[in-house]
Amino acid sequence: MSERDLIGYGAQPPKVIWPNGARVAVAVAVNFEEGAELQVGDGDPVSERVGEIVSVVKEGSRDQGQEQLFAYGTRVGLWRFLDALRRTETPATFLMCGRAVERSPMLARAITDAGHEAANHGWTWRPHSDYADAATERQDLLRATDIIEQATGQRPRGFFCRGSESAWTRSLLAEAGYLYTSNAFDDDLPYSDPSGLIVVPYNLDTNDMKFFHPNGFVRAVEMVDYVRDAVEQLLIEAERGRSSTLSIGFHLRISGRPARFRAVTEILEYLASLEDQIWRAQRIDIARHFAAFSPAANTSQTRQGDMT
């Protein structure tokens, strides 16, 4: 039986005070995957099937329709995002796939030139649990790291892959000098991993992928209301002394579409209106702040008192 931590901080989570005095940190993550999804036309054995519709193209054949659905994200969606982030002065983390950056380095550079964080989202948009050995995964991790740095001038310090990490991912990231990983859906606060990495949790519920799921969002207002409910609940808990983080995930090809972009603009404007009630932060800043005050998040020292 695998070792799993089903307890975490338990009844005594650390009372983190974020840099602006807030107890709630909110991180906006934008996925930059276009061109890194599996496509037969790019030499991959199969084409990605998750999209606006279920693909009817025969497996093993080039799916130009799916290619175009992804391309919309970088051709149009990216510019909507950069404009909205600028207007609301929102710091964001862009989760960049290496192959996407290699194909469109000027777009990756536009993102970091705008002041946003570049994090590693894997070489291609795939679960790292698929890797059969550490050597191959290491090669792809370093390849993506180098490509992102070359294109943006910023060496990524954070990581998040589709689905699940492999058994070796975290040790490989630590070996490569990474500070944090975000493949964690099990807490509202960061924590330390035995590899030495800080784990900055990611939320799949406050994520626009739910527009592609039958039990998810249909209209933009549904995501806006859901995110607002999450923030308001965390603010209520903050009044009682509880600290937390919340991740809001967007995809260029999903929320970059006009009808869904209303969710993006309204959520960003709502977060900006909260001023010092929340800390709007990039994931790297959350990791750095947490690491500075809690090098071992599971120690008894961490559980005592406020970290300010």
Rank of each mutant, 00 (worst) to 15 (best):
K15A: 10
K15C: 02
K15F: 07
K15V: 07
K15L: 09
W18P: 01
W18N: 03
W18M: 11
R23P: 08
V24I: 14
V24F: 02
A25S: 14
A25I: 12
V26R: 00
V28I: 15
V28A: 06
A29S: 14
A29Y: 00
V30C: 07
N31I: 04
N31W: 01
F32N: 03
E33H: 03
E33A: 04
G35E: 03
G35K: 04
G35F: 01
A36I: 04
E37Q: 11
E37L: 06
L38I: 10
Q39P: 00
Q39S: 07
V40T: 07
V40A: 02
D42N: 13
D42R: 13
D42Q: 13
G43K: 08
G43R: 07
G43W: 10
G43V: 11
P45T: 11
P45Y: 15
P45S: 10
V46S: 12
S47F: 06
E48S: 02
R49P: 00
R49Q: 10
R49L: 05
V50M: 09
V50L: 10
V50S: 08
G51F: 03
G51C: 06
V54N: 12
V56N: 12
V57D: 01
E59N: 14
G60K: 12
G60Y: 11
S61Y: 15
D63W: 02
D63Y: 02
D63N: 11
Q64C: 08
Q64S: 12
Q64T: 15
G65E: 04
Q66L: 08
Q66Y: 05
Q66K: 14
E67T: 13
E67N: 09
L69V: 05
L69Y: 06
F70E: 07
F70W: 05
A71P: 00
Y72C: 05
Y72P: 06
G73W: 03
G73S: 10
G73L: 00
G73P: 03
G73Y: 05
T74V: 14
R75D: 11
R75G: 05
V76S: 07
V76Q: 09
G77P: 02
G77R: 03
W79Q: 08
W79G: 04
W79D: 13
R80K: 13
F81A: 01
F81I: 04
F81N: 00
L82Y: 06
D83H: 12
L85A: 09
R86G: 07
R87H: 13
T88I: 11
E89T: 14
E89F: 11
P91M: 14
P91W: 09
T93E: 03
M96D: 04
M96L: 12
